[in-house]
Amino acid sequence: MTSRALSTDVLLGLLPIALLIALWQGLVSFELAPVALLPPPGLVFSRLLQQLVTFSFQQEIIATLFRLFTGFLIAVALGVGVGMVAAASPAINATVRPLVRVLAPLPKVALYPALLLLLGFGHESKIALVAADALFPILLSTYYGASTVEQKLIWSAMAAGTPRREILLKVVLPAAMPSILTGCRIGLVISCIVVFLAEMITSTDGLGHVLITAARTFQAVDMFVPLITISLLGLILNALLQAARSYLLRGFPEA
């Protein structure tokens, strides 16, 4: 894609966001919602800027990001690892498949109370929940990608002298990369949602906790600040992943 087309895309993408903010402003201006409950966007954004430079708010962001990243990376490592191995070995596939069938549709947040008792109120329980939720889309798309690799790519590599045991790393993994990265993208969005959710339910810090504290004391502006922050973080992380994706998939037709 040319940089010109890219910037047009970015502009088009910003349009609905601008409309949303305009709608928000409209609701406030025409007094359709009480200011105490729905503060105007200008107030929220200026409070956000104020907050962003304070050490305590930065600490909250760091706590959230740390949980998000650690959980997501564990999900990537496990999901890609298990997905690849399951695609390569019918025996492992047969072992893993029923487990995945049972666990994948389970609402992972239902495990959170158990995780809290097991791992405590700190980082670990939230990381575990993020990892559990992000795992399955990554695992399933890795498995799908790895089991649909074109046979002749594998044959070409074997004829060139690649031993059978190295085919998984040298051919299947790179060939499945488009599918794996699609899974990672879904996993990342889920990670953003789940880390926030976990912090809202039970936490002593993090952006979700900031929101709940503000809500309990009816501080509408302070309630919106962490919300906007997590959306912005999600936007940035997605852009970073997208950049990594365009680089890694630069040879693939559909990328």
């Binding site: 002749k152 044959w155 004829a159 002298g161 060939a175 040879g251």
Partner: peptide, 28 residues
């Protein structure tokens, strides 16, 4: 088993999409 004494060329090319022309040729 397959071996480097017998080199296939397929109708579908079967080039490695993640490698450049040079990378593909250097693979063997």
């Amino acid at each position: 088993a397959p071996g480097p004494d017998r080199g296939p060329v397929f109708q579908e090319f079967a080039l490695f999409p993640w490698k450049t022309v040079l990378g593909n040729v250097m693979y063997g």
